[in-house]
Design a protein around this nucleic acid. Structure first.
Lengths: 324, 324
DNA sequence: CTGAAAGCGCTTACAG
DNA sequence: CTGAAAGCGCTTACAG
């Protein structure tokens, strides 16, 4: 904690100008005499020089960091998403600042404002609500670059990168039909998220006479168990279930099995949001695996590239496992 | 995303100097003529002025933000801890930057370096390992203020704020003794965390002839269930259990109950790290409730005050519930 | 290839 | 009470 070594200190120690020291240390200009460069590097090392990120940011007019705001950091799916952003960021030498909206649009608005006024070049946001998140996002987008990821909010007025939900549902349904399933039950939850709404709409589009849907109050393992109880109470079981989220599928599967239902023989189980969770259960669950790295890479491109309100859809990959 | 409004823009629009505009807008100097102040405020509002945090930070030599690095953001206890820091921060107009070490000392070292070279005045860290986190923390502490929270690492060479584990164990044991319990089983887990080591040491100090201990490979609900199975397999049950973490207690309680053990009649159950989790089960579990807000407040004081390697212990509060 | 100088947007002694 | 000026630590045209 002694007073920090500055670029000037290094330059003096190496007997060069600040300009030259900067060129060497920032690695931005290769045209420096090898011997001078070596002297600068040595001096920097010896004095423990670290560039002052604040000064650099002011001069360069960019912080090299972006914020990532997710509805809830406790949801494993978002943890994976955040991981994907961390990796894309570190690959391009950027920093990421993480924040959580506690699933509340008001907290989200406050966090957006906080992020926009802090040390970021832009913000990636997964909106908490399709209907209520728009205004705050639009406001943030007036001052800094904002990209919506995974879910969008109406009136946000900024770009979006997410999964192609319609294609995903179509792939799952086609897979189930090919296995002869005609009584598919769609199990979804609250419709605050645009992704949920899109999945349900796509399912309705494709539903046949034997298919049906069920909506739960929220996405959780417990809700999945409840769904299983509802299915078990009905006179006839469906022959397949399409869960809008992996946590639902895990809860549903275990309860069905405990009650003697054979998966996949009696009921095939499938899900969206394929995280590791789905491989931990027995049988592992067939699911759409989101290309989170591709989503993150594209979002960062949009954040750093020219402004746009473009919408990018990335196809999820169907991973067939023993549950179907 | 038009070019940002600067202080100079506001000053011109209000017909004053940058100095005056700054004094009004930063709210740091009350000695400004009321009418001028009003004009500046109006102009700022009209132009949508927001101070440039980077420029302010460079000039003030402080960012007004600090980093919080926890072992795992998925652990509910750390989520609570992070919440406490967020609140203390916003109360004093500071920002907090959140990071996660994935329970890995190597990742921790990398994150520490990243935080120290970014836009923070200091770092709060919950070390992943008592034995392995020291060097990286010490290194970070050479360049920026660092405070350890909840756990400490040997050789870290910086301040610490945490729970008084010895007093906590003593309170729990006294509570159980007062209820006539003489065969207490301490259920702990890995000893990488200083808090675990302290709790176990304190228990050994107080243990009577009927007491015993059991160490599990890790802290989790599953480990708690495993512990219950071990207890059930023995010829005689203990009459009380002291769990070193709440997740252990929850898993243990449910498995004991499923096997017909009555809580608290047959076995009283108690825990450390009292989060909401403990109130969700039936019976709710008696536990030490950590004063996370006090811990966070003290840590931020140490971060912003003069450097010190002081150690502060904050007493946990014993919350008696139906499990004892 | 190198250095002197300007300037990023603020804040704050300093002089008036 | 107000403004002109300096300066936080960098980077980068610009001139040589």
């Amino acid at each position: 904690m002694a007073t920090r070594t500055t670029l000037l200190d290094v330059a003096r120690a190496a007997g060069v100008s600040k300009s030259t020291a900067s060129r060497v240390l920032s690695g931005v200009d290769r045209n420096v005499d090898a011997e001078l460069a070596e002297r600068v590097l040595q001096a920097g090392e010896r004095l423990g020089y670290r560039v002052n990120a604040v000064a650099r940011a002011l001069r360069r007019q960019t912080t090299g960091s972006f914020g990532v705001l997710v509805p809830s950091i406790r949801n494993p799916y978002f943890v994976h998403l955040v991981d994907a952003f961390s990796q894309v960021a570190s690959r391009s030498g950027m920093g990421v600042i993480l924040a959580d909206s506690l699933d509340d649009p008001d907290v989200e608005a406050e966090r957006l404002e906080m992020l926009r006024d802090s040390f970021v070049d832009g913000i990636v946001v997964v909106p908490t609500s399709m209907t209520r998140s728009g205004p705050a996002i639009r406001q943030a987008a007036e001052r800094t670059r904002v990209v919506q990821v995974d879910r969008w909010a109406t009136g946000a007025g900024c770009g979006f990168v997410g999964v192609d939900n319609a294609a995903g549902v179509a792939a799952l349904v086609a897979h189930l039909r090919a296995a002869g399933r005609t009584r598919i039950r769609y199990v979804g939850a609250e419709q605050e998220a645009s992704a949920s709404a899109e999945r349900l709409a796509a399912f309705r589009e494709l539903a046949g006479p034997g298919d049906a849907e069920m909506l739960l109050p929220h996405f959780s393992t417990t809700a999945g168990r409840d769904a299983a109880h509802v299915l078990l109470a009905a006179p006839e079981l469906p022959d397949a279930v399409l869960c809008a989220a992996d946590v639902l599928a895990v809860g549903l599967l275990s309860t069905l099995q405990r009650r003697g239902v054979r998966v996949p023989r009696d009921v095939a189980v499938t899900a969206f949001d394929g995280t590791d969770l789905l491989e931990l259960v027995d049988p592992p669950i067939t699911a759409l695996h989101h290309r989170l790295d591709a989503i993150a890479a594209r979002a960062v491109d949009m954040l750093t590239g020219p402004a746009s309100t473009e919408e990018t859809r990335i196809r999820a990959e169907l991973v067939v496992r023993a549950s179907t």
